[in-house]
């Protein structure tokens, strides 16, 4: 059986805008690409019972998450003619306003990049064992559950 290559997607702390810019710049050498699609998830300062979310602390079951991500990646590449796909998800404490998810798909023509990007984001939110603990300004917390 062919051994699947497991790529890490997790990074400690927020994803910097400069990191995203560098990643875009790296693709200028791949001249067969005609379209990129990027999704950025940002921590929102939700108000819940009068308390404001100041940060989300992300944890994961890393072995299971990366195994699942490898499966998702293979299915997405089988379904869409992508040139490449890069995914970064934050772990640890991410403040409101900071970026916690960066999904970057590229293809020759735009439909594959945009459709694959949307599908991957949905699958990450629904299928990866990652948990967000919402920390309020008074330091109390609640465990987030994903909604649309």
């Amino acid at each position: 059986m062919e051994k699947k290559k497991v790529k890490n997607i997790f990074v400690e702390g927020p994803i910097a805008a400069s990191f995203i810019a560098d990643d875009i710049a790296k693709h200028s050498t791949k001249k067969n690409i005609g379209a990129h699609s990027i999704f950025l998830g940002q921590v929102r300062n939700d108000s819940i019972n009068g308390q404001e979310v100041k940060a989300i602390e992300y944890t994961t079951y890393v072995d299971m998450a990366l195994e699942k991500m490898t499966e998702i990646r293979e299915e997405i590449f089988a379904k869409y003619p992508l040139t490449c796909m890069h995914i970064y998800h934050s772990l640890g404490s991410i403040k409101a306003g900071e970026i916690c998810l960066f999904v970057f798909t590229s293809s020759e023509r735009r439909r594959a990049a945009t459709d694959a990007c949307n599908e991957v984001v949905e699958r990450i939110k629904n299928e990866l064992p990652v948990w967000g603990k919402e920390i309020f300004t008074d330091n109390t917390h609640q465990w987030k559950e994903n909604t649309i």
Partner: peptide, 10 residues
């Protein structure tokens, strides 16, 4: 065995 509450990544 892992005990997994509802996921909330992304």
């Amino acid at each position: 065995i892992a005990l997994l509450p509802p996921f909330s990544g992304g």
